[in-house]
Amino acid sequence: MKTIKGSIGRSVDDPDPKVRFYLFHGADEAQSSALGDRLAAALKASKQSVASGVLRGDPALLADEAGAIDMFGGSKVIVIQPAGEEILPAVEALLEAAAAESPVVAIAGKLGKTSGLLKVAESHPLALAHVSYELDARDAERLVVELARTEGLRAQPDVAASIASACANDRRMISQELAKYALYLDASPNAPKDLGSEALDAVGADLGGDFMGIADLALGGDVRRLSDALSRMDASGKEAIPVVRSLQRRLLMLAPIRARVDSGERIQSVMTSLGKSLFWKDKPMVERMLALWDSAGLARVSERAGTLERRLMRGDSPPAAEALGEELVAIARQARRG
């Protein structure tokens, strides 16, 4: 069935036990992923990932996995991300099965009106489909206020608007930024704090400078040019956090693309499908990064980048410029080793 506008929150927070397949699709994949997380939280379930490429070769596997009782007696949600038309036979088998112990969530990007997967999800009584549209400015501001509250932050409308704009209305970036403000202000749901312009000035997202270029040199394994760029940076280390955040933004962009490659798509086909969503000058560098890093490697770099940023913000690391340089050179050397 297709969700009615405004009803998706109720559908994932108080899920219908009869629904065994959820299709979250659309341009805002971060919102789709967040809905999958909310469903798992509502069911107090763990998430089990299944690659779409595996289902293409074994369509019966999905129904088997959904019908199996967890060996530890807990609940689980089976997640397919990214998902596309290749999982349709597996989904049809799931919906035709006699029973299912665990629901399945498929996270897809934009699907056309002729999509067989979308038609099944919208028409079958045991399925639910929801489209996640890109956030406009007003929706993004409301999201900032809502997510801030979960971090123990009270964000005024003007502050929320600034954060949404700095993050280009991107849900994942907004969530990351708010977590940083909560850390900076020592805020929590049990000890809420006001989020004002002072905090934004101190640790807000800095999108200026050629910081993305430096991050790209590290992920692209160009040790020589990276070392040269680091030598030209301000020795005070004031640019360290903006560079780390640029690295994180690039990782957020690469992760879902690399997941598609891991599921069986060719790098060249994935790059072609991105079209104008990726700046043409960035395409050769991004294609190189996809060849150098797998999903596990990108996840490790993301974790280390987050750890480094927290150390820089707390001031419990070596001089910022030194700590940043060591980490970026280590990333570049790992990229060269493949």
Rank of each mutant, 00 (worst) to 15 (best):
S263R: 06
M71A: 11
I163H: 00
L61P: 00
S33Y: 08
P318S: 13
G204K: 05
R225E: 11
S11A: 15
S236Q: 03
M212G: 15
Q248I: 15
G213A: 06
S7V: 12
P59E: 04
L226T: 01
G112Y: 06
F279V: 11
E265V: 10
D228P: 01
Y22G: 01
A205E: 08
K238F: 04
E326I: 13
A187S: 08
E326N: 09
K47F: 03
E141Q: 12
V203L: 05
E309C: 09
Y22N: 04
S263L: 07
V131S: 12
A255R: 14
F211R: 13
L185A: 05
M173E: 14
G53T: 06
S132W: 00
I174W: 00
S197K: 12
K193M: 14
L118H: 02
A187Q: 01
N169Q: 08
M173Q: 14
I257Q: 04
P17V: 09
G73Y: 06
D206E: 07
A299I: 12
R266N: 12
G73F: 07
N169K: 08
L39I: 09
A129Q: 03
A321L: 13
D262T: 11
S197Y: 11
S162P: 02
L35F: 15
M1I: 10
D228M: 10
E122S: 15
I87S: 01
Q156G: 13
K281I: 09
R142L: 12
V91N: 00
P103A: 07
M71V: 12
L118D: 00
S49E: 14
D70N: 14
I257E: 01
L178K: 02
A121Y: 01
A93H: 11
G73W: 10
K47W: 03
A34C: 07
A97F: 05
V104A: 04
T150P: 03
E65F: 07
A148Y: 00
K2A: 14
R288H: 13
K193Q: 15
S273T: 09
R250D: 02
L185R: 00
P89M: 10
V54G: 02
G275E: 06
I267Y: 05
I80G: 01
A108W: 00
K180C: 01
A205T: 13
V131W: 02
S263E: 10
D316H: 07
L230V: 06
V12T: 09
P256S: 09
F21C: 09
